[in-house]
């Protein structure tokens, strides 16, 4: 076997990179909220592609190992303990049969990742193991994990070369005020100059009605020229929609495929992890960058992941 869930936590799901190829029929992409933390966890365990991992939101799960397997924890700091002893995050560690891994409330960040050296044995649904809660597909029976659920780990590894190198600096999500880089959105011209200025120069606060679907922000209303209704079109990860209230909503992993509100901007992909890990109350400053800068940062991110994989494997 692999693992048994003793406590489910607040919202623990199986996620991978996402379910691509079905947006044309109305299926959300889903997938991890913080791709960077998720990929680091995989790299520490010798995986070029992380595959599927557990994603926990705010309150982590308690898990019993039913088989020996290496694991790694990244993302939000949920003060992890193994059999009651504090353990480090961003390290490859061995969980032995009968060991209990317990995560508590996140002290920093929102989303924590638990990856295993092996493949999580849940069915591939439409090309992905990601849980889509709305459609109740993917992951573990299409739902959040609960006490008593068991998931096998296929090809579980208990040893990897260079164990002493399998760690990475902790990415702490401690900042309560952040700069988030954005690109102009497809409907940026729907907004007045003052509207755009408000968006880029005032401060927005992450509200507690933020979830895997979208982050709702509080702050100065963004003024449009002639309303914000558009003929519905596709919504990318990080798209910043302006609804009639003028208060921005950033669309996240579980966003619907199509939307009818104008999109003033799109968060640069490299800043999505930092945004995803922003708790309610976090203050955001949006900074406009060009597509050239954003894609240069994307290539740098990819190079960092390659470097990390090589340095630890």
């Amino acid at each position: 076997m692999g693992i048994r869930i003793l406590e489910g936590g607040a919202l623990t799901t199986v996620q991978d990179r996402g379910r691509y190829g079905y947006q044309s029929t109305g299926f959300s992409v889903s997938g991890v909220m913080d791709r960077r933390s998720f990929q680091i966890a995989g790299a520490l365990l010798g995986k070029r592609e992380t595959g599927a991992a557990l994603e926990a939101a705010l309150l982590g799960p308690t898990i019993e190992f039913t088989e020996d397997v290496l694991f790694a924890l990244t993302g939000a700091d949920m003060k992890p303990k193994l059999n009651g002893w504090e353990i480090p995050m961003y390290h490859a560690l061995l969980g032995k049969r009968g060991d209990v891994l317990s995560l508590g409330f996140a002290v920093t960040g929102v989303y924590g990742y638990i990856a295993f050296a092996g493949e999580m044995d849940v069915p591939v649904v439409m090309g992905s193991k990601s849980t889509n809660l709305k459609c109740r597909i993917g992951g573990y029976e299409g739902r959040t994990l609960e006490r008593g659920d068991e998931i096998g780990i296929l090809g579980a590894k208990t040893k990897l070369p260079n164990m002493y190198k399998r760690y990475e600096d902790i990415h702490a999500f401690t900042e309560t005020e952040k700069e988030i880089r954005v690109l102009a959105g497809p409907e940026a011209d729907y907004f007045t100059e003052e509207g755009m200025r408000a968006f880029l120069e005032s401060v927005y606060t992450v509200t507690d009605s933020s979830d895997r679907m979208g982050y709702r922000l509080e702050g100065e209303a963004v003024a449009s020229r002639r309303g914000v209704d558009i003929i519905s079109n596709g919504i990318a990860f990080g798209a910043v929609q302006i609804p009639p209230s003028g208060k921005p909503i950033v669309m996240m992993a579980d966003r619907q495929t199509m939307g009818g509100y104008a999109k003033i901007a799109n968060v640069a992909t490299v800043d999505l992890p930092e945004l995803a890990q922003s708790r309610s109350g976090t203050k955001l400053h949006f900074k406009m960058i060009t597509i050239e800068e954003a894609q240069k940062l994307l290539r740098r991110e990819k190079a960092y992941m390659r470097y990390l994989y090589r340095a630890t494997n």
């Binding site: 102009a184 596709g234 990318a236 990860f237 798209a239 799109n266 968060v267 992909t269």
Partner: peptide, 12 residues
């Protein structure tokens, strides 16, 4: 063709 972030374009 419009940019829709660094990973998408919207063709109208």
């Amino acid at each position: 063709i419009r940019q829709a972030g660094d990973m998408a374009v919207c063709v109208e």
